[in-house]
Amino acid sequence: MTSTPFRPRDWSSHPSFVDPRADGYRSSALRGPTKPLVPIRQSISELTGPVYGHDSVGELDGDLTRNGRRNGEPLGERIVVTGRVLDENGRPQPNTLIEVWQANAAGRYIHKVDQHDAPIDPNFFGGGRCVTDGEGRYRFHSIKPGAYPWGNHPNAWRPNHIHFSLFGPAFATRLVTQMYFPGDPLLALDPIFSGIPEAARERLVADFSIDVTEQDFALGYVFDIVLRGRDTTPMED
């Protein structure tokens, strides 16, 4: 086993397990571990992970404007989201599975436990997946998700967002995150977003791009994702 270990999770980039703020993310209070993490040396168990390729996704998996259609097109503003998955060393991460899920244009999830009374769109499912190409690039089409209320505090609203799940090259590089949209006034009020250390927050806000925008079809957003990279400093042992 000669695989180089990954750099540690950068806790100046990730939200802490328990939100320390009085007006923070309330449900972390009873769910986040409170004892210090036990550091371990990465072994083959952490340096390996599931392997994916282009045959891992179906034809419509990367097109959320089509994969839930029943009798017409989904409502809302069509978007195309693209970007690169890189590691901390700037290396593209090919063949990385990206799973996405989101609310519809009205801010309603198809999930059975979502009680928000905004309408379900019969032609929008809201889940999909894609795999990065040889240069770490991914791309999917969707509908811009709406904001929705939640119970964290009075009049709490989640900003528009798309959930992302990535594996990367190993179990150690696993990442689940959320992509936000530029200029959203709810970002400043959202305890999940602002639970991220301030210097790192903007990394989750996509850029609008007229170059990515598809004429007469969909607005383009660019969202690059950086996973843990291998430690390039020489080891003493």
Binding site: Y25, I110, V176, T177, Q178, G229
Partner: peptide, 19 residues
Amino acid sequence: MALKQTPSQTVGPFFAYGL
């Protein structure tokens, strides 16, 4: 090290139909 890690966010309550 050129780039910074993308922050994590909760999987939330509605992951089931996606994951």
